[in-house]
Design a protein around this nucleic acid. Structure first.
Lengths: 237, 237
DNA sequence: ACAAAAGTGTTCGTCTTACACCCATGA
DNA sequence: TCATGGGTGTAAGACGAACACTTTTGT
């Protein structure tokens, strides 16, 4: 009674011992209006139909878990994440009413201002939700989301380059943008001077724009001292 | 060709889509003569027969991954770990020649001086190996072991209570023992005074022995100032 | 001149590190 | 009294938080 995935299809993959289904679930974060949001999908069918859930899906035959997460994210939302990291595993029997399913939770970061949400295969709808105003979630996805949030917050503190994932244009940004992103992600305010100092001594791979010829390397049109633009340098150093 | 676990048994668990087998592999660490050792098992049959490998096994129907790791450890070695933590997942297709197997890697810590290695079900032999003199390992277990080592080292730095897992007697130990354990685990030497200070301000849950009546609370027979004995207090504070 | 944010410097307290010193015991 | 390790104190340097100050633009 608990071994089938689709009731009408004929089973064709047989094993000597029972095996769990393995899936990935992805918490996709972005910043909208300076506040962290997560991407949720409205389930079209199956258990929890009509509920909101994390995007995700089952592991295919010839892919790693990382590849599975990447593929599912693209299929269900059309997004490609700059950062996609494994965070936790959920293996409690009974967490999925259809049968034994093990979920590997991923955290994904996509640039601020990302809007394009493609119509999904299995999903009736997809939308961004602010982290502090979440609807009830399907399965144990509330727990998964909480776990991924904590993981990502801790990772950002120890590796500021993760902030780059939220930049709308990695080739053209100010330190103020980075600073605001940092404050939004951590939820705390952080002294501006100290943030700059920290960036320097962590030697983040960024470099000021416009050392060549004409100076288009600063903001314009702002009614204050214009900020230096920076870009990310890929190579180490 | 790649769907069977045992060639002769008749398959009886069938699914609509292919499923990977899910297993746990456990790196069990202890201290012997002040040096970190890991427990390896000599494979009795199957691929890599005769090779050394990490203990582990397949996930059963009604257990979580944590329970699986605990059970496999007990079955194959007779040990019960004080600390047993999930560290990483290995999901590359082809990492097991028998077919698709996903391994969840665990790190386990058992008390120094642990000797009893029970005869294992599937294992021909079991033995402790010093971490710097390892034999060739089966499958991708060398990679797994390396990953778990790094994970454990990082965890110990941020939570000194993990050191307690190596104590032969948690109700009767000196700070020197803890200090030696710390140095063995991290591989670095650490100033004695500073180690004590750190323990105090991290407010580790330990308390000196022998505040009541007779003073059996110190070492004796040593030809130097006898050390205070401590014990672990379970409750917080 | 004023507001606003960029960009820099300075101070202060805390934590880390290294090292020095006395204490208790057995040989 | 000497060697050995327990136990504590202290000074120097590294690091982070808080804040003051100057600079550059638009209005």
């Amino acid at each position: 009674m608990n071994k089938r995935r689709r009731a009408s299809a004929s089973p064709s993959f047989c094993y000597t011992y029972p095996r769990p289904a393995v899936a990935t679930d992805i918490a996709v974060f972005t910043l909208r209006d300076g506040a962290p949001h997560v991407l949720l999908i409205k389930r079209g069918g199956g258990p929890f139909a009509g509920s909101w859930a994390l995007p995700g899906g089952f592991l295919a035959e010839a892919e790693t878990l990382d590849e599975c997460a990447k593929r599912e994210l693209a299929e269900e939302t059309g997004l490609t994440a700059t950062v996609l990291e494994q965070c936790a595993i959920f293996s409690a029997p009974g967490r999925d009413p259809r049968g034994r399913v093990i979920s590997v939770a991923y955290g994904a970061l996509v640039p601020s201002g990302t809007v394009s949400l493609r119509a999904a295969t299995d999903a009736a709808d997809a939308a961004w939700f602010p982290l502090d105003v979440l609807p009830p979630l399907a399965f144990d996805h509330a727990e998964i989301l909480g776990s991924v949030r904590a993981h990502v917050a801790a990772r950002v503190e120890q590796d500021l380059t993760l902030l780059f994932a939220f930049l709308a244009d990695p080739e053209h940004f100010t330190l103020r943008e980075l600073h605001l992103i940092y404050e939004a992600v951590t939820g705390k305010s952080y002294d501006r001077a100290n943030f700059r100092r920290r960036i320097r001594q962590d030697s983040l791979p960024i470099t000021p724009l416009g050392e060549t010829g004409v100076r288009t390397a600063h903001e314009s049109g702002v009614r204050h001292r214009p900020a230096q633009y920076y870009r990310i340098v890929e190579g180490a150093g």
